[in-house]
Design a protein around this nucleic acid. Structure first.
Lengths: 215, 215
DNA sequence: ATTTTATTGACATTGAGGTGACAAAACGCA
DNA sequence: TGCGTTTTGTCACCTCAATGTCAATAAAAT
């Protein structure tokens, strides 16, 4: 469960937001000044930072805080002019919202910033395929696939249930434009089947292969 | 040299923005439809996506595109209502801007999203990398790296686990736009491997390299 | 000019993956 | 059911392109 540090000296807004965020399942820590911010910064996964605090413009502290621990920061402010937004973003913030704003939008932005970018994770039964690292885990165990094998697995997983012509596979993965009789596709299908017992690849005689849609 | 994919079917805005981004030092690729987006997605570091294209709502394609390669996406739209913003963010976008907007703010947001959330101190096993002073310590011992070697190490460490195409490395670190056959990348990888026995760089034959995510 | 850094080219090494032989299975047809 | 044909499964081998490696050269920095 992610924890959010809310820095807001407006009692009403601070109270409302912290309740709201709590209700959405976040651990929300609400502070009202720079000193407390400093203290709680380390425990947060994301920071919502009001720009005007009683003890001054919170932006002054931002670079220092970020240097201690890098976090996604969403700045809240009443100021609407462009220069201020640009300044906030340039000082290290990830996002900038102008009051008044809708709770729902803030929440959506929080989710967007907390969501890991590399989450291109495909799942099929006990398989996990990470596209960006080109790695496959089967029941938690890393399995090494050769490049073409990985490409083939990826294509099948991205279209579960669909029948692929051998020719289509040769074209999409091997880049072939003519289709000689070859055992190449079979070979790679074979390797995948051997590597992953849980992988249900149906043979469609005279056509090609398809991956049984997992649920 | 970061490259930005601009998906915008308004001629005027598309042209203006691509010029602007180019003038700010980005390699900007401007396309106007979903098909071309699909093709260029892989080469981009960040995507600016207009929501309404001639061939429909671009949000339909977003999850599919993100699955191929995870990228920060900024959505542009004329729609102002909250539901639309939330929808876009929930589908995987990192940011959402409503037209009309100021170029400067878009630029600031681009910078914010491309800026690695990295603290100035990166760690990997027994390595400590100080980004600001460009120094590396291995098990407490200062190790001198050549500039390009440091850049390469930094890029890998900022994206642990991710596979980098050789072309991508040549582009990001060497600024190449064409990709001649060269032993340059291999050489620098070699030097890093020799300098740091603890550095686990996987070779992905025919693709590139990746740093094993340490934990 | 001297030192440091980067790139190139030659050569060794490796491993991905294709090839073809053969076995096994599926299919068609009587 | 049985036989012949076609398609697929399986395996071992072999090729070649991609990479590892190093020394020599070029380029850049000082």
């Amino acid at each position: 469960m992610n924890s959010i540090l809310l820095v807001e000296d407006d009692e009403l807004l601070g109270h409302g937001l912290s309740l709201y965020l709590n209700s959405k399942g976040y651990t929300c820590c609400w502070v009202t000044n720079a000193t407390d911010t400093n203290e709680y910064w380390f425990h947060a996964d994301l920071v919502i930072l009001d720009r005007q605090l009683q003890d001054g413009d919170s932006l002054r502290h931002l670079p220092g805080w970020l240097m201690q621990k890098a976090l996604p920061v969403i700045i809240l402010t009443a100021k609407v002019d462009i220069e201020n937004r640009v300044e906030g973003l340039m000082l290290g913030a990830k996002d900038y919202m102008t009051k008044p704003f809708a709770q729902e939008e803030l929440l959506a932005r929080i989710i967007a910033h907390l969501r890991p970018l590399g989450a291109s994770l495909l799942e099929y039964k006990s398989l996990q395929i990470d596209v960006s690292s080109r790695t496959v885990k089967c029941a938690g165990e890393r399995v090494n696939l050769k490049p073409k094998e990985f490409d083939l697995l990826l294509l099948l997983l991205q279209n579960p249930g669909r029948v692929f012509h051998r020719d289509e596979l040769l074209n999409k993965i091997w880049g072939y434009r003519s289709f000689p009789s070859t055992r190449t596709v079979d070979n790679h299908i074979l390797h995948l089947r051997q590597a992953f017992p849980c992988l249900e690849v149906e043979t469609h005689r005279g056509i090609g292969y398809r991956l049984t849609a997992a649920k």
